[in-house]
Amino acid sequence: VRLVQFQKNTDEPMGITLKMNELNHCIVARIMHGGMIHRQGTLHVGDEIREINGISVANQTVEQLQKMLREMRGSITFKIVP
């Protein structure tokens, strides 16, 4: 398990697509080339996201998580399992 932190201070999309796997874990499905996450190089396709800013992603839908990420500003921390 590791923590990945980055800054999001604009309306620029993060450039990641999330999916739920068969165990209902949140997985990074795709990283858009040239997007914020791609430029930082901190997340990778297949990484499992456990928490966003200390909030568990368990029992949340992809749509709920994407909305939460769109609305966040400032420092964002993901707890991930590579």
Rank of each mutant, 00 (worst) to 15 (best):
R50Q: 12
V28G: 00
V81Y: 11
G41S: 07
K67V: 13
G54Q: 08
K8A: 08
K67C: 14
L43F: 15
T61Y: 03
R2P: 01
N24D: 11
N9I: 12
M72F: 15
G41D: 09
C26L: 08
R39G: 06
M14Q: 02
R2K: 09
R50L: 15
F78S: 01
M36W: 15
R70N: 11
G34C: 04
Q64D: 14
L65N: 03
V62I: 11
L69C: 07
I16F: 15
C26A: 08
M72V: 12
G46I: 00
K19E: 11
H38F: 09
V4L: 11
G54T: 05
Q64M: 10
R2M: 14
K19F: 10
S56G: 12
S56K: 14
V4P: 01
G74P: 02
H33L: 06
G35C: 08
K79S: 14
E12G: 09
I16G: 00
A58F: 08
T77F: 12
H33M: 11
T42V: 12
V62E: 14
H38G: 07
N53R: 02
Q64L: 08
F78M: 15
K67E: 14
G41F: 02
Q40H: 07
V62K: 06
I55E: 14
L23A: 15
R2E: 11
K8W: 06
G74M: 01
T77R: 07
T17L: 14
R39Q: 11
F78E: 01
Q40M: 09
Q5E: 15
A58E: 14
F6I: 11
Q66G: 10
G46E: 04
T42M: 14
G41V: 04
Q5I: 08
M36R: 07
F6Q: 02
S75N: 11
G34N: 12
I31D: 02
V45P: 09
G35E: 05
K79D: 04
H44K: 13
G41W: 01
L69P: 00
Q64G: 09
Q60F: 14
K8N: 07
G15R: 02
I27K: 05
M32P: 07
L69E: 02
E22L: 06
T61N: 14
R30K: 15
H44R: 09
E51N: 01
M36V: 13
R73Q: 13
K79F: 02
K79P: 00
M14I: 15
T10P: 10
E12W: 03
D11F: 04
I37Q: 03
A58M: 10
R50I: 15
I55R: 13
S75M: 08
A29R: 07
G34R: 05
E71G: 13
C26W: 11
M36C: 08
S75K: 13
N21M: 04
R70T: 12
M72L: 14
Q66E: 14
E51C: 03
L23C: 14
V57P: 10
E48K: 05
V81R: 11
G34M: 04
K67M: 11
M72G: 08
V45I: 10
D11Q: 14
F78L: 13
P13F: 06
H25E: 14
G41E: 07
K19M: 08
T42W: 04
E63D: 14
V45F: 02
F6S: 03
R30D: 12
L3V: 13
A58C: 10
Q5R: 15
L69F: 07
D47M: 01
H33Y: 07
Q64A: 13
S56H: 07
V81K: 10
T61C: 06
M20Q: 09
M32W: 10
I27M: 09
I31R: 01
V81A: 09
A58G: 12
L65P: 00
Q64I: 13
C26M: 08
D47G: 01
L65A: 05
T77C: 09
E22W: 06
Q66P: 02
H25P: 01
E12P: 01
R70A: 14
V62C: 10
G35A: 07
G46M: 02
C26S: 01
R2N: 15
R39S: 10
H33W: 05
G41C: 06
C26T: 06
M20H: 10
I80T: 06
H33R: 13
C26F: 06
M32D: 15
E71T: 10
R73V: 10
E51A: 07
R70F: 13
H44W: 04
F78Q: 00
E48Q: 08
N21R: 04
G34S: 08
D47T: 01
S75H: 10
M36S: 15
M32A: 15
D11W: 05
G41I: 02
I37D: 02
Q5C: 13
V28W: 00
Q40S: 10
T10N: 08
E71Q: 09
D11N: 15
K79M: 06
F6W: 04
T17H: 15
C26V: 14
G74A: 02
M14D: 03
V1Q: 05
G74R: 02
M32C: 13
G34L: 04
I80M: 05
D11E: 09
N9S: 12
N24A: 06
I31E: 01
G54N: 05
T61A: 08
L69S: 02
L3N: 06
A29G: 08
K79L: 07
G46S: 02
L43A: 01
T42F: 12
H38S: 09
Q7T: 15
G34P: 03
S56E: 12
K19N: 10
V4M: 06
E63W: 06
M68R: 13
T42G: 13
M20R: 11
L43C: 03
Q5W: 07
I76D: 01
I55A: 12
E71W: 08
Q5A: 15
I27E: 09
G35Y: 06
T42H: 09
R39P: 02
A29E: 13
P82Q: 14
P82F: 03
S56D: 14
G46K: 01
V1D: 15
G54L: 02
N53W: 00
Q66W: 04
Q5N: 15
N24E: 09
L3E: 15
L43H: 00
E48A: 07
E63M: 06
I27T: 12
N53E: 03
M36E: 14
R2F: 05
I31Q: 00
T10I: 08
I27A: 05
M14T: 05
N21A: 04
I31L: 09
M36I: 15
M68W: 09
G34V: 03
R30Q: 12
K79V: 04
G35D: 04
H38Q: 14
N24W: 02
R73I: 10
A58H: 08
Q66L: 07
D47N: 02
Q7S: 10
I37E: 03
R70S: 12
R50T: 11
K79E: 06
G74I: 00
T77W: 12
R73H: 10
V81D: 04
C26N: 02
P13D: 11
H38K: 06
G15V: 01
T61S: 11
E51V: 01
L23M: 14
M32L: 08
D11M: 07
K79C: 09
